[in-house]
Simulated assay, not measured.
Amino acid sequence: MEFLTNALVTLLVIVEPLALVPIFLATTQGFSADQRRQVAWRASVIAFVLLSLCAFFGEWLLTRLGISLPAFRIAGGLLLFSISFEMIFGLRAGRKSAVEREEIDKDHIIRVAAFPMAIPLLAGPGAIAATLLLAGQTGGSPSLMAGLIAVLAVVIVLSWLCLRIAERVNRLLGTLGNVVVSRLLGIILAALAVQFIIDGIRAAIRA
């Protein structure tokens, strides 16, 4: 129980489901309510599968590919920064407003669900690193590993529930509120991206 409690608290703190709601609204601007639900569901499934695979094979795969966790963190930071740049200057909104809502096809929904929602927001470098560390603490115990997968499921389900309320938040904010929040969150996301890069560089130097 102590291991499961620590795992749950650690992953909830890192993933921060409630903090994803405004970012989700900004990255899915121009989507219908049904399309947002599809993105939330697909992103949650992708994140759960990815983190589960990391629990079983993550350390082995990174070792074989010669990729360090600091490098993964820096790459995630750079990708997030590109998204934040578009949010701040309204490039995403301008590009999406040129496409009618009904023209947002299934492939586009999958792309947004995979990046940036699933990776690196839901299953980011921090969540992957925490999953790898927690999997190492199981000592190969099948029961503890099953408990870790259950904890991952709980965290992802909570994240999905938070994303489901995003449409209500969107209606509450209105057009002006969404524009202001999108720009503000772009700045916050840029800072988060830079922090990812700084943490990655620090970890690389320590290594």
Rank of each mutant, 00 (worst) to 15 (best):
residue 109 I to Q: 02
residue 110 I to S: 09
residue 110 I to T: 12
residue 110 I to P: 06
residue 111 R to V: 15
residue 111 R to S: 15
residue 111 R to G: 13
residue 111 R to L: 15
residue 112 V to W: 07
residue 112 V to I: 15
residue 113 A to W: 05
residue 113 A to P: 00
residue 114 A to R: 10
residue 114 A to Y: 11
residue 115 F to P: 06
residue 115 F to V: 15
residue 115 F to R: 11
residue 117 M to L: 12
residue 117 M to V: 15
residue 118 A to G: 03
residue 119 I to W: 02
residue 119 I to N: 03
residue 120 P to T: 08
residue 120 P to V: 02
residue 121 L to G: 01
residue 121 L to T: 05
residue 121 L to E: 03
residue 122 L to M: 15
residue 122 L to R: 05
residue 122 L to W: 05
residue 124 G to N: 11
residue 127 A to F: 08
residue 127 A to Y: 02
residue 127 A to S: 14
residue 127 A to I: 02
residue 127 A to R: 01
residue 128 I to L: 12
residue 128 I to S: 04
residue 129 A to P: 00
residue 129 A to D: 00
residue 129 A to G: 12
residue 130 A to E: 03
residue 132 L to P: 00
residue 132 L to H: 01
residue 132 L to V: 12
residue 134 L to M: 05
residue 134 L to K: 00
residue 135 A to E: 05
residue 135 A to M: 04
residue 135 A to Q: 01
residue 135 A to H: 05
residue 135 A to I: 01
residue 136 G to E: 04
residue 137 Q to V: 01
residue 137 Q to I: 02
residue 137 Q to Y: 11
residue 138 T to Q: 03
residue 139 G to E: 02
residue 139 G to P: 00
residue 139 G to N: 06
residue 139 G to V: 07
residue 140 G to T: 08
residue 140 G to S: 08
residue 140 G to V: 08
residue 141 S to A: 12
residue 142 P to G: 09
residue 142 P to S: 09
residue 142 P to T: 12
residue 143 S to W: 07
residue 143 S to T: 13
residue 144 L to A: 12
residue 145 M to Y: 03
residue 146 A to S: 09
residue 146 A to M: 09
residue 147 G to D: 00
residue 148 L to R: 06
residue 149 I to H: 06
residue 150 A to S: 12
residue 150 A to H: 07
residue 150 A to Y: 08
residue 151 V to Q: 03
residue 152 L to S: 03
residue 152 L to F: 09
residue 152 L to E: 02
residue 153 A to P: 09
residue 153 A to E: 02
residue 154 V to C: 07
residue 158 L to Y: 05
residue 158 L to R: 07
residue 159 S to M: 11
residue 161 L to D: 04
residue 161 L to E: 02
residue 162 C to A: 14
residue 162 C to V: 13
residue 163 L to K: 00
residue 165 I to P: 04
residue 165 I to H: 07
residue 166 A to N: 04
residue 166 A to K: 10
residue 167 E to Q: 14
residue 167 E to A: 13
residue 168 R to S: 12
residue 168 R to Q: 12
residue 168 R to K: 11
residue 169 V to S: 08
residue 170 N to F: 10
residue 170 N to S: 11
residue 171 R to N: 13
residue 172 L to N: 05
residue 172 L to Y: 15
residue 172 L to H: 13
residue 173 L to I: 09
residue 173 L to D: 04
